[in-house]
Design a binder for these strands. Structure first.
Lengths: 214, 214, 214, 214
DNA sequence: CATGAATGAGGTTTCATTCAT
DNA sequence: TATGAATGAAACCTCATTCAT
């Protein structure tokens, strides 16, 4: 939102030596831990440094500021998510809509539920960094993959694939979040997967126009 | 989450003199303004008081702390939203699923888009206060109304209406949020309404089982 | 200590009407209650007024400021104490030292232990108002009475009765306080009485010079 | 009393660099000065930091809160006092009661009168922190030493040495306090020493039972 | 007289960030 | 490079006291 320069959000130096790689990772992991234990509100750079076993000064050597650190975590999470979605989308090109929906839903829910605690903690981070262009950019990758897959669906065509993809992702994100925030019991997660397939499938069918066979 | 007592989130005293009613409102409005301009992160009690033209002390006479103030805003927003949804749900009992979907989607999107800026600012607030029981309570009202309406749908029955209602709301919330965060151009909002109807309708049809006519 | 004008510590107006007498008393009692429940640190004028069932404004009508209120409580306590000590001293003029010691100790401990909680709460108040001349003045009365009684002791004379009286009071005050702060179990109080007699008696005997019979 | 955790009263970090040792001391000394000049009531962390020539933040690096700072001063005072009393008690084991009384009184009064101003300022602090277990602990040391010395007195035995020790300390503390609050002129201090010996001696003799020679 | 809304100085505490060592 | 002491702006919140109604 009011995040001024966004270059500031990137990590400061590319670690070339083994030692710094190690340090960076230690800081990163410490940050994740603190985020989980105390939430983004009570995460302080000093605390993270202490947890990582380095001094604050060192932390600032690798992350120019607190936001950059939080952003790094968010980024990794989002990129993993996008990777798995891309993978699912490429693998299922040309398959029927139901199969597509199932694949994407599975990829999405699996990725989010692998570390439900991390996913939840990141909601707060994302809402602070929310509007940031960098975030939008990362998320776009999955949408592009989804669009591309949808276009490959046999026998159907979408009026506005881009928006359709947006809607589908939003629906998945929204319901997964709701389930996470409601506690994400195994039973709920099971229901979520099933209903999300129903929902996406229903939506895709409704959004698609049948193409006359050539 | 770590928000201990919830009494802390309630307003402090009910104004008895005419003067104070005015003051409370001034503070509330000032808070909304500051929230819009600076976001919840940079909203400070001093700033709100200054904007309202009162002293900090006065602010604290009516809102025991910053959270209570933010919560008041969130609460009003959510309650209006729930009101309109309840209204829509009661009015459309017994109608076909498509009509129901249209009604709820319209109510939801209308409510959210009446003050898109406020809606967006409140995302951050909600993520801070999200876990709070009071919030959950308010939101439940709409879900109950939706469930009740769905049960009245002619000729169909749902296996787990409660979860269906949750999914539908989550999908509406998620996609509306996505559109808001993407800028919410009039065109997008139009698309959102249309596609959300498609989505909800598709989902409800998929989730419903046909009942044999008596 | 740094208490500027001390006239400010007196109550503001002498209640002439029945209603105000009642009000003043209600405020006074409320203050005592709050003092006991929350301590002088957390006693606020608003709280006292609320407890008394009047408005802050009314409180300030009768007590010009918070200190005056606290001082009033301390004053009453001290005056009662001095009364009882004076009484004991006058009654036992001319008796043997042991009898005198017993009488004064009993009066002192009784007075302090009648409301041990109040006594303790007032330590804090006294330490804030400690140096105040007004307090010193009140306390002096008991000392004067004690001196006068000691002078009447048959067959003995003190080199510096004034200081002897001071020492005796200080010893009584100090040990009573220690017992109060240690919890003041019935057993301890019993011990206190007994030992205090031993102590005072021993001291008085040591401080007195035998006078040759006339 | 209502001072919850006692960890809060302990110092925050042990300085490792030379610089910080200096800083801690500067803060401590500044605190003592402010305490003397303004009293504990008007001592503020900001003022102390300013006086010490450091920023508030630095102060809070070493003392987690205001109380911890005040407590540190009180602690040092009490510990010195206990040290000197212990010393006096160990040195005079097995000596006659009169010698014992003289030794302890001297140690006590000397310690208190070395910095009469500090002693007085600390009364207020002690009454705030009085109930704290940590304080009780420190003070206990002197009582234990006194008890141990009394037990070693030749030819006498005490029924309840523990209480006797308590009484003797309370009497010393009480009278010293009275003298301090009365201005502590050299003459009074001289009288105090003398009379306190008389008082303690008289008390000990009264409290002791003669033991038959073996 | 009583009310209670309003005041606002002032206090405590946190924490991102810098920089001398 | 690493350290961690120091910074200080800035936030939150309290409460004695006043004064218009």
């Amino acid at each position: 939102m009011s995040l001024a320069a966004q270059g500031t959000r990137e990590a400061r130096k590319t670690p070339v030596q083994a030692r710094s790689t190690f340090t960076v990772e230690a800081i990163f992991e410490a940050a994740v831990q603190v985020l989980l234990e105390l939430g983004s509100e009570r995460l302080t750079t000093t605390r993270v440094a202490a947890r990582a076993g380095v001094s604050v000064g060192t932390l600032y050597q690798y992350y120019p500021n607190k936001q950059a650190l939080l952003f790094a975590i968010l980024k990794r999470h989002l990129e993993q998510l996008q990777d798995e979605i891309e993978e699912a989308c490429t693998t299922h090109r040309g398959r029927p809509l139901l199969t597509m929906a199932e694949a994407v839903v599975t990829a999405f829910v699996d990725a989010k539920m692998r570390r439900p605690d991390v996913s939840m903690s990141l909601y707060a981070v994302a809402s602070e960094l929310g509007g940031a262009v960098v975030v939008q950019k990362i998320v776009k990758r999955g949408r592009v993959a989804l669009m591309s897959m949808l276009k490959s669906a046999p026998g159907v065509v979408f009026d506005d694939v881009e928006f359709t993809a947006l809607m589908m992702f939003a629906a998945m994100a929204g319901s997964t979040r709701a389930v996470l925030e409601a506690g994400a019991t195994p039973k709920m997660v099971r229901l979520l997967r099933r209903e999300l397939v129903v929902l996406c499938c229903g939506y895709l069918k409704g959004a698609a126009r049948k193409m006359p066979a050539v």
